[in-house]
Amino acid sequence: MMVHLDRLRAVVRAAASLTRRLPLVSLLLAVLLLLPPLRAFGEATMVRQMLVQMPLIVLAGWCAGRAWVRAPEGSRAARLRSFADSFNRAGATGIVIASFTMILWMLPRSLDAARLSFGIDALKFASLAFGLGLPVAWSWVRCPPIARAVIHVEVIATLARFGWGFAAADERLCASYLQGDQERAGMLLVAAALAWAVVVAWRPLFGGLGGGKPAAKADRRDGAIA
């Protein structure tokens, strides 16, 4: 019995250490995606570039950002962060950076440029990780709830706008991708917008804001109403 428990603990410890290294591992994976064969695969179609490769890079940056946010007190990363934090009240600066990065890399011209030039693609990798994933992880936790709601709506709208544009265009907007591919990418972006909307709206509509029983708490404060 004890042996089993020990083994279990070891597995848990290993998993935990892996999670601690997740940011590094994920960034490494992102760099791997830039290697020619994987890069060619990841950018062979518009759907892959927009809906697989780029989200993966953003995710890697996000993991790194989360590790930065959670860096142990007193570490160099934490000291740097608390300095950087003073420029990022309510996550405003990070969200501005992230917004521009997101929109820039969804433009058809940028998709083409990344596909056609390794240098620009490397820039894309760096900026999606450190100009989108990382700032979101860093800033989101600092955003007030109202700002989060507005950002959600804007992200949904942005996905839908680009999706619609790609799906509706009656010519190829990217020289590197076929029309059918572009339409598919457009429809998938619209689908992503819808999915995002459902996921984001579900809890406010039916489930509450997480943590405890908000209604009960409120009742105590102003019981007179209920």
């Binding site: 406010p204 039916f206 509450g208 804001l209 908000p214 209604a215």
Partner: peptide
Amino acid sequence: IRRYGSLAR
């Protein structure tokens, strides 16, 4: 939501 738990409520 804080007061009633959800918009549905």
